[in-house]
């Protein structure tokens, strides 16, 4: 296995005059389940489409598993992609879909695909157009898995599913990930979807990557500090403020630091993944507000 599944240098994509993704520099090591999280319209789909080769970058470069995305049949065979809304051919039966996969992929694992479909309790002659959203997503995931990719990319796979179908889909995905040791990149605008599944997190807000890293490390280096009111610039230099909120007497900061926090004035609390993501979303909107204010002056 190559050491990094996805490497981007100054990656950017412009639609007309609007940048959907800017200055994206990330390096995702292999063997992770990567959660890509951010609000709607943040550029998640753009990044994933760039990674799967559906889009060409406007700026910068991207390599996936050491190759150019969609650079040829061999590269396509190594990367699986389940698009947003999990599209399938409505007029074709499930068996037709499996046949499609078998004919178009050199490493197709037909036994695995059939087993999965059988486990889901689906019959092979069902037309894909008649399936529920959850079943359709499962068929799309089956196609992605049976291709035996080294990296599986899923764009908002559970967005349209009800909570139960969500949980089943993610559980199926996790089982397959463990069983076949593949890397997964999964996007969602809901942190709760990713909380149980991901061990690597990328927060994308406003077409920029805010933070990327292993979940454990991120949680270990981010802290919420609560204490008497204080300005952000009076914090130690190695504590990067992610978000700050103040009342008359009290200040709350979310900071990132590698060093332990000794200041007794602070009550230090651990962050959950959700708090972490929200702090970065906050940071971005606060910056926007400041930029807008400066523009007005």
């Amino acid at each position: 296995m190559t050491s990094s599944v996805l490497e981007a240098q100054g990656l950017g994509k412009k639609y007309g005059k609007r940048w959907a993704l800017r200055e994206c520099t990330i390096d995702i090591p292999a063997g992770h389940v990567v959660g890509l999280v951010g609000p709607n319209g943040a550029g998640k789909t753009t990044l994933l489409k760039l990674a799967s080769g559906q889009l060409e970058p406007t700026a910068g470069s991207i390599t996936v598993l050491g190759g150019r995305p969609a650079g040829g049949p061999a590269q396509l065979a190594r990367v699986g992609f389940v698009a947003q809304g999990t599209p399938v051919y409505a007029g074709l039966s499930i068996a037709d879909h499996l046949r499609l996969g078998a004919r178009l992929n050199p490493r197709w694992d037909d036994a695995r695909a059939r087993e999965r479909i059988a486990q889901l309790g689906l019959t092979f002659d069902r037309r894909a157009g008649k399936l529920s959203g959850g079943q359709r997503a499962q068929v799309a995931l089956t196609l992605g898995l049976a291709k035996r990719p080294e990296l599986l990319i899923l764009d908002e796979p559970v967005a349209s599913l009800d909570p139960l179908a969500r949980r089943e889909f993610l559980r199926g995905l996790m089982e397959a990930t463990v069983e076949h040791q593949l890397s997964v990149v999964l996007s969602s605008h809901l942190v709760s979807d990713l909380e149980r599944t991901c061990d690597y997190l990328i927060v994308l807000v406003d077409s920029r990557v805010q933070v990327a890293g292993e979940v454990d490390k991120l949680l270990a280096t981010h802290h919420r500090l609560t204490g008497p009111r204080r300005d952000a610039d009076r914090l130690p230099a190695d504590q990067h403020v992610i978000s700050a909120s103040h009342t008359d007497r009290q200040s709350t900061f979310v900071v990132r630091t590698d060093a332990p926090i000794h200041d007794p004035a602070w009550t230090v609390t651990q962050l959950g993944m959700e708090d972490l993501v929200l702090a970065y979303m906050d940071k971005s909107t606060a910056e926007c507000r400041r930029a807008a204010l400066e523009m007005q002056r």
């Binding site: 799967s52 559906q54 969609a70 040829g72 049949p73 061999a74 396509l76 065979a77 990367v79 699986g80 992609f81 698009a83 947003q84 809304g85 599209p87 399938v88 051919y89 409505a90 499609l100 996969g101 178009l104 992929n105 050199p106 490493r107 799309a140 196609l143 992605g144 291709k147």
Partner: peptide, 17 residues
């Protein structure tokens, strides 16, 4: 319109072919 191009273009076949 159905988005199925994203399905088929991500099988191991180039869109040119």
């Amino acid at each position: 319109e159905a988005g199925t191009h994203l399905l088929v273009w991500n099988q191991s076949i180039t869109r040119g072919r």
